[in-house]
Simulated scan of single mutants.
Amino acid sequence: MKENVTLEDVAKRAKVSRATVSRAVNTPESVSPEALKRINKAIADMHYVPNRHARALTGVRSKTIGLIFFHDINTLFESAFWGHVINPIYEKLSVLGYDLQIIAHAKMHTSKSGEDSGNEYSEDIAEKISEYNVDGFIVVGQTPKNLEVIFSQVRIPMIAFGAPLIPTSTVSWVDTDNKSGGRMAVDYLVSKKRKTIGMITGGLEQSWSVSRYEGYKKGLAKAGIEYDPSLVEHSSNTYANTMSLTERLMRRRHDINAIFAGNDEMAFAVIQTLKELNYSVGSDVLVIGFDNTNRTLQTFPNITTVGQDFEKIGEYLVTGLLQKMKGEKISSRKIAPKLIIRGSA
């Protein structure tokens, strides 16, 4: 008998797909009785035991937590933001005797067709995730819409950084109160006598960006300022795209005297563009970012921003996951942001 029997070996013997074998192991009720019978016979004949199930039988833990980054690995290392998120998680796990394994999969973000809601796609991701020898997962990055479906198949404890786009999702998460932060930014700009306030969002595909955009609109309403869509651009969250949209926004609306950018990276691009257009940042046009990353100190004037409490986020992600690993139920949490005033506003 072949040693180190793989999932593919079982699939070949049972004449089914690898994804079907994965479902038979994780959610047998989702596989037809005929296929399940063949798969179970192949598993028995070949003496195949999935690693994580073998650990469960022996009670042995890996003392490793997987941090799944649903995006390209280059984004993880190129952006200052993710360092602020991951460092507190790593430090808190280290103190508790856990290792952190970073798992970056750009292909996990969207399927080949550009959609991420199909059953076959969910099964494929769940199968890949199940192969990692970890005790639990912390999910960060541009998560797929069907995250709940994926982890219902994986059946390894998980918690996510970031509220889901779908309000009815039962996924456990920790996030900044982004809507409150967006409103906070507008409140401050209004207090500085600015009423023609533009915004460049990070797009409307992620909950953080949507919430900050909603906060912007709520801030305007609170101040009695009518929302004007001509003052808003939706960026792809890249430097070049944000510069292009800032220029388009300023040429379209010469009366803008303040801009709220969806995050610090975009605020940096906004400031550079305004300088090229000969606007005085902090005087002609006030600029506010969001996150309070190192990027805020890398331009002049330094960027006023709505700061996230990364230490508290990391603490709640780690403690929440460990509670779930013990079988305890936890509540998702929103953490209050804080306005940090610098020279750009």
Rank of each mutant, 00 (worst) to 15 (best):
I102S: 00
I102P: 11
I103Q: 06
I103K: 05
H105M: 13
A106K: 11
K107R: 05
K107D: 11
M108C: 11
M108V: 04
M108H: 11
M108A: 15
M108R: 07
H109Q: 15
H109N: 09
H109F: 07
T110H: 13
S111H: 00
S111D: 15
S111A: 11
S111C: 10
K112P: 03
K112V: 12
S113Q: 12
G114I: 00
G114H: 10
E115F: 05
E115D: 01
E115W: 00
D116M: 10
D116F: 11
D116Y: 10
D116K: 05
S117G: 11
S117L: 01
S117E: 12
S117H: 01
G118S: 02
N119P: 04
N119G: 01
E120V: 07
E120M: 12
E120R: 14
Y121F: 15
Y121P: 08
S122A: 15
E123T: 14
D124I: 10
A126Y: 09
A126K: 11
A126Q: 11
E127I: 01
E127D: 11
K128S: 08
K128F: 11
I129M: 14
I129Q: 00
S130Q: 06
S130Y: 09
S130N: 01
S130W: 04
S130M: 03
E131K: 15
E131I: 00
E131R: 12
Y132L: 02
Y132P: 06
Y132I: 07
Y132W: 02
Y132G: 06
Y132T: 02
N133K: 03
N133L: 06
N133Q: 10
N133H: 08
V134R: 12
V134I: 05
D135Q: 05
G136T: 04
F137K: 06
F137S: 06
I138H: 07
I138A: 05
I138M: 04
